[in-house]
Design a protein around this nucleic acid. Structure first.
Lengths: 258, 258
DNA sequence: TTTGGGGGCTTGGTCAGACCATTGACTGGG
DNA sequence: CCCAGTCAATGGTCTGACCAAGCCCCCAAA
């Protein structure tokens, strides 16, 4: 009885957190599944005995996590419907935390290399003709020498996303796409600052084609290695040469607005 | 002029989304950094010309993503402070989406194998004596044969988390830990249903020690391979033998309520 | 002069009630 | 049979109020 009593602080749960817990409980136990409708906000208010504001804040959190899709009006598709759309939320999440410099750029590159290596291996093992066609379409578009940097970057993103999709592992694919999206604007900035864009584009095209060939051939090992080398090589040789600041990525001159 | 005009739907932004966008803009441009305080809710209300409910819903989203830490009262630590606590949010996110069956268990195993392989390689390359000590502590605790399944599982989780931390890549570490946490209760269930727990524990202990040795020796290649084999092997040989349902993880008999 | 306590202000948390906008279903007239 | 107008359901927004937690500061007492 005389030990230094571990007075852990009582979890000062806010009302909306309790509401959130109730709803999540229903999801975790399987009572609520994708496509099911939540009771209307006003009904939840009386069911749970809280204010509508509390209910709405809880719903907002679920929505931000891509687990809820609200829709106004009447009819079968109206109301708050349980959904499973993790990509958007995950992308948003990573963008935010990268901006908070909590995830240094080098770490993100490493993560991309890891995830996309895995994606490529899976893709090589089980890509369907449709998946391969999706990749080829992006390759073809990137082969057009008149393509703007922006479009090229978009196609590049799409190409890598297609590989991730082809792997068939939704978790890895979503993480891959989210990470790629999170660095999208940074890469675009780098593209713009390159001395010789054409040489870089040529190199990327060639590497992309090699990756596609390996996947189409079903060579997992080679596909994985090529993608990893593609990502690491590009960032090591080019990005670090342009981006001098290792951490920050913001305002060089302008202070705040105010 | 006669092409099929791509009438993309106007982004019906809700008020709180606009508020969110304004705040995120400040974060992305670097005007708001970790530790900075947001203006008080009531002040944001007049600055942005919206209701307090709208402001609060936006803040709730940021908080759910681990980018904000609200605190009542006055003083330096009060108000809404920009933070960077991604782990909790990410774990919550994955748990939710795994429950929504959007991420099949096999996919999660694959993701763990990928992420932890990378973590182990990084850890072997740059683990400090402190990191190694943290791993050894968990190993020692797991060596105690009287340890309950629950405690063993916790130590197991901690051991893998230590490896991820030791790798020094926060993004990969956070994803690794979140994924491991997300399957924590599932693994515990499997442990309970095993025929011969002691044999399994012995095997896990041996594999853990081998992994630790490789990391301590700085052998990245071997550490990565061992971890990947550890995760894949365990799940392949044991989990699939226990879990028969490939997708669902919930109520075998009860339909829905109501 | 120092110290202790208490009032008051700031800030997030909650609530009640009202109104608006969107959407689909119902219904009556052509 | 079809169309348009109406209506109810539902999420979105706003207003204004009160509560609870903390810190600051001033004043009284030692």
């Amino acid at each position: 009885m005389s030990e230094p009593i571990a007075w852990e602080p009582v979890p000062r749960s806010r009302t909306f957190e309790l509401v959130l817990a109730r709803i999540e409980e229903q999801i975790l136990t399987g009572n609520l599944r994708v496509g099911d409708r939540l009771p209307p906000e006003r009904e939840l208010v009386e069911l749970l005995g809280v204010s509508r504001a509390a209910v709405r804040e809880a719903l907002r959190v679920l929505e931000a996590q891509g687990a809820l899709r609200p829709r106004v009006g009447t009819g079968p598709a109206s109301g708050s419907v349980i959904a499973a759309m993790p990509s958007a939320g995950l992308t948003q999440f990573l963008r935010l935390h990268m901006a908070l410099a909590h995830f240094p750029f080098a770490d993100v590159v490493e993560a991309r290399a890891t995830l996309e290596r895995s994606s490529a291996r899976l893709a090589a093992a089980q890509a369907t003709p449709e998946h391969l066609a999706a990749m080829r379409e992006q390759l073809d578009r990137m082969d057009d020498p008149r393509l703007s940097l922006e479009k090229f970057n978009d196609c590049d993103t799409e190409f890598h996303a297609s590989i991730a999709e082809a792997g068939g592992n939704r978790l890895i694919a979503d993480m891959t796409i989210a990470v790629r999206n999170a660095v999208r604007h940074t890469l675009l900035k780098v593209f713009h600052e390159l001395d010789d864009w054409e040489a870089t584009a040529a190199r990327l095209r060639s590497e992309h084609h090699a990756i596609y060939d390996a996947i189409a051939a079903g060579d997992s090992e080679r596909a994985g290695e090529l993608v990893e080398a593609h990502i690491r090589g590009f960032h090591h040789d080019l990005v670090y040469a342009v981006l001098d600041e290792p951490e920050r990525g913001a305002e060089p001159e302008s202070g705040t607005g105010s």
